[in-house]
Design a protein around this nucleic acid. Structure first.
Length: 438
RNA sequence: CGGAGUGUAGCUCAGCCUGGUAGAGCACUGUCUUCGGGAGGCAGGGGCCGCAGGUUCAAAUCCUGCCACUCCGACCA
């Protein structure tokens, strides 16, 4: 992509409403634009990141055996009356009427709808287990939206729902998602710690929140510092195996959000120098809730003995749009965003310091074509801006690599390769630079 | 929903107290100089001063109502 043709409205000054780093940087980097309180448009650069995160989530869901479908944003109120949540949900739910004055709502979550789909289609225990997900926009009319997309009213969420015949099966489904979440966040370059959590209005009695530690997080969290050193998971976890040992390991040490925090236990179980008490960003939340919805909504299957059994369910959410902000909170510096490579909007920023100079133009065109041909995503700054402004923009939008092509090096066929995270710079020939980037 | 604020150019803000021709910096357009870490000169364009009512000869400025947005709290992926 040529920067001269790219819609990238970067801001030199910080908009007044932004309080935290991720919100400031997303506005300044031209990733989002507020439409209304807690409701944002995603501009091209922001959408690229959102899509990358979405794709990683999708791949890991598929790998763990979940199947993607897509449910609507608008749901009929009647389904929610069946589960009893139409009245329970309160003003957070956006209620609307269609032209026939039928009560509808913009979905804040999808348990009712998925249960409805399931009960109409599945009759036998032989069809279990099932795990279905979608990645869809949700709306929750928060009392106080804030922090940009971190607590928006409209947000993109991956939510999935597991259906099992019995507790043992449900437990395995829960464990699969537990492991899939560890892997998902790890792939994005994030350290997310599973913590014991309240299950809230969704109900149920087994629940973990996946938390990124960050001072600007919204909830207070307490955990054992050793979690930060836990090594990566196996490349390809075998989801058919018993996953309990992995889950046990990741729940072996103290970790709790404030609502489940027990100060006495914390002090008893965690040595003083290993105690972390900080704030965190919830990026995922998993629940087991048994027959809470299947019972009232009549989602049953015929068991092996011929009797009707309500299915055991769980639900699992990842805040896809929140992860964009969460990643920035976890990875930025004074100059701007520092994207982990897997979610970076482009891998390389190619900076032509002197468009119009034959040597610079030639080298840039060559690199741009070769990198593009190799499938490397490149943002090519071919604008007439001054060098300082170009560097500032590149640092702000935080691409992992910058290739700087200026007349000084160009006449010897050399370019400068800069790593955004480390700040290391190397002067290299073209082939060497290509080798490092492909 | 309680409390506190803010709405003036694309962005950051001044002007409001004490009513009298709409301002600055950045951004934008043209041009010249400069050109390896957010350059400088000259010349320009851009405003329903949140909306509606009221007071007044006269309202961005004073009064009333409404709307929007932000912050603190209670609530939450």
């Amino acid at each position: 992509m040529r920067l001269s043709q790219y819609f990238l409205p970067v801001l030199k000054q910080t908009p007044a409403e932004a309080q935290i780093a991720s919100h400031r940087l997303m506005l300044r980097a031209g990733m989002i634009r507020q439409a209304s309180a807690g409701i944002y448009s995603w501009l091209p650069l922001g959408l690229r990141v959102l899509s990358k995160i979405e794709q990683i989530v999708r791949e890991e869901q598929n790998r763990a055996g979940a199947q993607e479908l897509l449910m609507p944003t608008i749901q009929p109120a009647d389904l929610w009356r069946e589960s009893g949540r139409y009245d329970d949900y309160g003003k957070e739910m956006l209620r609307i009427q269609d032209r026939h004055e039928r009560d509808m709502l913009y979905g804040p979550t999808n348990e009712e709808l998925i249960t409805d789909i399931f009960r109409h289609s599945v009759r036998s225990y032989r069809d279990l287990p099932r795990n279905l997900y979608h990645i869809q926009w949700k709306f929750r009319d928060e009392v106080r939206p804030r922090f940009g997309i971190m607590r928006g009213r409209e947000f993109l969420m991956k939510d999935n729902y597991s259906f099992d015949l019995d507790y043992a099966g449900a437990r395995h489904s829960y464990n699969k998602m537990f492991v899939a979440y560890l892997r998902t966040f790890e792939r994005m370059g994030l350290k997310a710690i599973p913590m014991a959590a309240d299950s809230g209005p969704i109900g149920g009695d087994m629940s973990h929140e996946f938390i990124i530690l960050a001072e600007t997080g919204e909830s207070e969290v307490y955990c054992h510092a050793d979690y930060l050193g836990f090594e990566a998971l196996a490349e390809d976890p075998d989801y058919d195996n018993d996953l309990q040992p992995v889950v046990d390991r990741w729940t072996s040490l103290y970790a709790a959000t404030d609502e489940k925090h027990d100060p006495a236990r914390f002090e008893a179980e965690v040595p003083a120098d290993r105690r972390i008490a900080t704030r965190g960003i919830e990026v995922g939340h998993i629940f087991y809730f048994g027959t809470k919805y299947s019972q009232p909504m009549g989602a049953t299957v015929t068991g092996a003995d011929g009797g009707e059994v309500p299915v055991e369910m769980g639900s699992y959410g990842i805040g896809v749009s929140r992860l964009v902000g969460g990643t920035i909170e976890a990875s930025h510096d004074d100059a701007g965003i520092v994207w982990p490579e897997p979610v970076a909007p482009f891998k390389v920023g190619l900076v032509n310091l002197k468009p119009g100079d034959a040597a610079c133009d030639g080298i840039c065109a060559d690199l741009y074509a070769k990198l593009g041909g190799a499938g490397v995503e490149v943002l090519y700054d071919d604008t007439e801006e001054r060098a300082g402004a170009k560097f500032a923009t590149m640092d702000l939008i935080g691409l992992p690599w910058q290739v700087i092509v200026g007349p000084r090096g160009a006449k010897d066929g050399k370019v400068e390769l800069k790593n955004r995270r480390s700040g290391d710079r190397d002067e290299l020939g073209l082939d060497a630079a290509l080798q490092r980037l492909i």
